Measured scan of single mutants.
Amino acid sequence: GVRVRALYDYDGQEQDELSFKAGDELTKLGEEDEQGWCRGRLDSGQLGLYPANYVEAI
């Protein structure tokens, strides 16, 4: 996976979405899909989806 850092807070709206705060680091686990979602893993171990444009590569 690729380490990325959140640029903005994001509150997951669905069960399969991650929630994070600006500045949090997570691991991107795949390329974004056509809707702009990426699969990732928080350092807590939680897996889920997040909007790709909310993070930057570290």
Rank of each mutant, 00 (worst) to 15 (best):
G1R: 08
G1F: 07
G1S: 10
G1A: 08
G1E: 13
V2A: 07
V2W: 09
V2K: 06
V2H: 09
V2D: 12
R3L: 04
R3C: 03
R3H: 02
R3S: 03
R3G: 02
R3W: 00
R3E: 01
V4S: 03
V4A: 03
V4D: 02
V4Y: 14
R5G: 03
R5W: 04
R5Y: 11
R5L: 09
R5D: 01
R5H: 08
R5F: 04
R5T: 15
A6S: 04
A6M: 01
L7D: 03
L7G: 02
L7N: 06
L7C: 09
L7V: 08
L7P: 00
L7A: 01
L7I: 13
L7S: 05
L7Q: 04
Y8L: 08
Y8H: 06
Y8E: 08
Y8R: 11
Y8D: 07
Y8I: 08
D9A: 11
D9C: 06
Y10D: 02
Y10F: 13
Y10E: 02
Y10T: 02
Y10C: 05
Y10R: 09
Y10V: 04
G12N: 10
G12A: 12
G12V: 02
Q13I: 08
Q13V: 09
Q13Y: 10
Q13K: 11
Q13P: 05
E14C: 06
E14D: 13
E14P: 07
E14W: 08
E14R: 12
E14A: 13
E14G: 15
E14Q: 08
E14H: 15
E14Y: 10
Q15R: 11
Q15S: 10
Q15W: 07
Q15Y: 07
Q15H: 06
Q15C: 07
D16A: 09
D16L: 13
D16I: 09
D16E: 13
D16W: 09
D16Q: 11
D16K: 11
D16S: 09
E17G: 13
E17P: 02
E17C: 15
E17F: 14
E17D: 05
E17L: 12
E17Q: 15
E17M: 12
L18N: 01
L18G: 01
L18T: 01
L18W: 03
S19A: 09
S19V: 06
S19R: 08
S19F: 06
S19Y: 05
S19N: 06
S19G: 05
F20Y: 03
F20D: 01
F20I: 05
F20P: 00
F20N: 00
F20R: 01
K21W: 04
K21M: 10
K21T: 08
K21Q: 08
K21F: 13
K21C: 14
K21P: 00
A22C: 06
A22R: 12
A22Q: 15
A22V: 13
A22L: 07
A22T: 12
A22P: 02
A22S: 14
G23M: 09
G23D: 05
G23S: 05
G23I: 02
D24I: 05
D24Q: 15
D24N: 07
D24L: 04
D24M: 15
D24C: 14
D24E: 15
D24K: 03
E25M: 12
E25C: 14
E25Y: 14
E25V: 14
E25Q: 14
E25K: 10
E25H: 11
E25G: 07
E25N: 13
E25R: 08
L26P: 00
L26A: 00
L26V: 07
L26H: 01
L26D: 00
L26E: 01
L26M: 12
L26I: 08
T27Y: 15
T27G: 02
T27D: 07
T27M: 05
T27W: 09
T27A: 07
T27I: 14
K28S: 13
K28Y: 13
K28A: 12
L29E: 12
L29S: 03
L29M: 14
L29Q: 06
L29R: 01
L29K: 04
L29W: 05
L29D: 04
G30P: 05
G30K: 07
G30R: 08
G30Q: 06
G30V: 09
G30E: 15
G30F: 08
E31S: 10
E31R: 10
E31C: 13
E31I: 10
E31A: 09
E32Q: 14
E32Y: 06
E32D: 14
E32A: 15
D33L: 11
D33I: 05
D33Q: 09
D33S: 11
D33H: 07
E34G: 15
E34D: 11
E34I: 11
E34L: 10
E34P: 12
E34Y: 15
E34F: 06
Q35Y: 14
Q35S: 13
Q35I: 15
Q35E: 15
Q35C: 09
Q35P: 09
Q35K: 10
G36I: 00
G36R: 04
G36C: 02
G36S: 04
G36D: 03
G36Q: 06
G36F: 04
G36K: 06
G36H: 07
G36L: 04
G36T: 03
G36P: 05
W37M: 10
W37T: 05
W37C: 09
C38T: 13
C38F: 02
C38V: 11
C38M: 05
C38L: 02
C38N: 02
C38E: 07
C38W: 02
C38R: 01
R39L: 11
R39Q: 14
R39P: 10
R39V: 08
R39A: 13
R39D: 04
R39I: 06
R39T: 10
R39H: 15
R39F: 13
G40A: 07
G40F: 00
G40T: 00
G40S: 00
G40H: 05
G40I: 01
G40Q: 02
G40D: 00
R41G: 06
R41E: 08
R41S: 12
R41L: 09
R41C: 11
R41Y: 06
L42V: 07
L42E: 01
L42G: 04
D43G: 10
D43E: 12
D43K: 11
D43F: 06
D43Y: 04
D43H: 05
D43L: 07
D43P: 07
D43R: 08
S44Q: 09
S44L: 03
S44W: 04
S44V: 03
S44P: 02
S44G: 12
S44D: 15
S44H: 05
S44N: 15
S44K: 07
G45W: 03
G45L: 03
G45A: 03
G45R: 03
G45E: 03
G45D: 06
G45N: 09
Q46W: 08
Q46I: 12
Q46C: 12
Q46H: 13
Q46F: 10
L47S: 14
L47Y: 14
L47R: 13
L47H: 13
L47C: 14
L47E: 14
G48M: 00
G48R: 01
G48A: 00
G48L: 02
G48N: 00
G48T: 00
G48E: 00
G48P: 01
G48Q: 00
G48S: 00
L49T: 15
L49V: 14
L49Y: 10
L49G: 07
L49M: 12
L49A: 10
L49W: 08
L49C: 14
Y50G: 00
Y50N: 01
Y50M: 10
Y50T: 03
P51T: 02
P51A: 04
P51F: 04
P51I: 06
P51K: 14
P51E: 03
A52S: 13
A52V: 11
A52G: 14
A52N: 07
N53Y: 03
N53Q: 09
Y54N: 04
Y54K: 15
Y54W: 08
V55N: 01
V55Q: 01
V55S: 06
V55H: 01
V55I: 04
V55K: 01
V55F: 07
E56V: 10
E56S: 09
E56G: 06
E56Q: 09
A57G: 13
A57S: 14
A57C: 10
A57V: 14
A57T: 10
A57D: 15
A57Y: 06
I58D: 03
I58Y: 07
I58S: 09
I58L: 12
I58N: 04
